[in-house]
Design a protein around this nucleic acid. Structure first.
Lengths: 122, 122
DNA sequence: CAGCATCCCCTCAGATACTG
DNA sequence: CAGTATCTGAGGGGATGCTG
């Protein structure tokens, strides 16, 4: 009743300037080291990457594996539970694409059609 | 910046402390006046309600109908296009519910690992 | 390599007051 | 009734430096 809806719960997980980029990478690559993630997400700082990963970890979305060695090696991967976000992200991605087209067709007619992309969500 | 996925496009529409509450109400009621929305969403201020509605309107999600009369009367409703958000919100809501349960079961029983594959989320 | 610690800025959103 | 107009504080996020 007062649950209104749990959309905000999902939003809390996804909101954050970089969180869905991280999820995108981890869903694409299975396992990634910290530096790999940083390289794969242009513009992100260590601080942001760390904090966002910590939040995702605290929510059970990603797993963190630390190897006791020097130099340090830390691997990140989606948890099985985290994978359950896939349909949600897919729905958002799909709608987002439609919305981009919608805005283009609405705002102006001289706008060129969007070129094909290769790195979409599954 | 990120051309690899359109999740952020959907996020831009949904993010905002009150936006999904407004969408929830408008999807439930078809047509609502400004004051009805304000009453239906406890805690929201006029400023927030106005600004969020303006953004939704600018994105073609909601429609604003002004009656030229005194006192003023303004009605808000989902656009046909805005209705296309419904499956996205439904997916997020569904996942949010599962996540709440997941957090509860994880917090109340920290020793036992939850079997990830035998589940019905999604 | 993978971080933590600081400092700082800027936006979001709350409170309050005013208006056609 | 349905809005504007201001002021303000909190915190999300950036830049930089240090460390095991």
């Amino acid at each position: 009743m007062s649950h209104d809806c749990r959309v905000d719960t999902a939003l809390e997980i996804l909101v954050g300037k970089w969180k869905h980029h991280i999820l995108f990478q981890l869903m694409k690559h299975d396992v990634m080291r910290f530096s790999e993630l940083k390289r794969a997400i242009p513009g992100i700082t260590q601080k942001m990457l760390t904090s966002q990963l910590r939040e995702l970890e605290a929510n059970g979305i990603v797993d963190r594996k630390v190897y006791a060695q020097v130099p340090p090696k830390v691997e990140y991967m989606m948890t099985a539970y985290g994978e359950s976000l896939q349909p949600v992200l897919a729905a958002m991605h799909e709608w987002g694409e439609k919305h981009v087209q919608y805005l283009q067709s609405r705002d102006t007619n001289k706008q060129v059609q969007r070129p094909p992309e290769s790195n979409d969500w599954i």
